[in-house]
């Protein structure tokens, strides 16, 4: 087994000193070494998007990235979306529009959309569907996720 690397992961503005094998994926490091289990694993082969986090502002499938590649970058996960007890606009919209059922895909969708809306606040409704098609949800049939995301995009634009 190749040796472990010492590195610092910055997650939600906090530094975590971890020791990982080169082959350790970012999602495993976030969940097991940093103890942040809000990021989920649905496939480990890059299709479902349940593991989506933001790395330097861009949505990334953390099962396809190695932890060592994320050293020194700003990682954001679902645990960092709320400010104290105050949920983000997107989180609130998901609750209001019933955008989650079992909630397993939800952190991935929240991070995907947060990243996209920060970079492209004026994204159109149709393009938003293409964005949402990056991730899988097995419960909602997407109808209410689309509603929630459109409502949040609207609210953020008028803010």
């Amino acid at each position: 087994m190749s040796g472990k690397h010492d590195l610092v992961l910055s997650v939600n503005g906090r530094d975590y000193a971890v020791q990982v094998e080169p082959r350790r994926t970012l999602v495993d490091a976030i969940r097991e070494d940093c103890g942040l289990t809000g990021t989920h694993i649905g496939c480990e082969h890059g299709v479902c998007g349940a593991c989506t986090v933001l790395v330097d502002g861009a949505p990334v499938r953390s099962c396809l990235m190695f932890a060592v590649q994320a050293a020194g970058k700003a990682i954001r996960t679902v645990e960092g979306l709320a400010t104290g007890d105050e949920l983000s606009v997107l989180q609130r919209a998901f609750m209001e529009h019933h955008g989650l059922q079992c909630g397993f895909c939800t952190p991935g969708f929240l991070m995907l959309v947060t990243g996209v809306l920060e970079r492209e606040p004026d994204i159109g409704d149709e393009e938003l569907i293409d964005v949402l098609a990056s991730n899988l949800c097995r419960c909602t049939g997407y109808q209410n996720i689309i509603k929630a995301v459109r409502a949040a995009a609207q609210e953020l634009r008028t803010k």
Partner: peptide, 20 residues
């Protein structure tokens, strides 16, 4: 609104794989 949502939406759900 669902009573289930506040924990799940904040990443505070507890799923089986989360246990050490």
């Amino acid at each position: 609104r669902r009573l289930e949502d506040p924990a799940l939406i904040a990443g505070r759900g507890r799923f089986t794989a989360d246990l050490p």
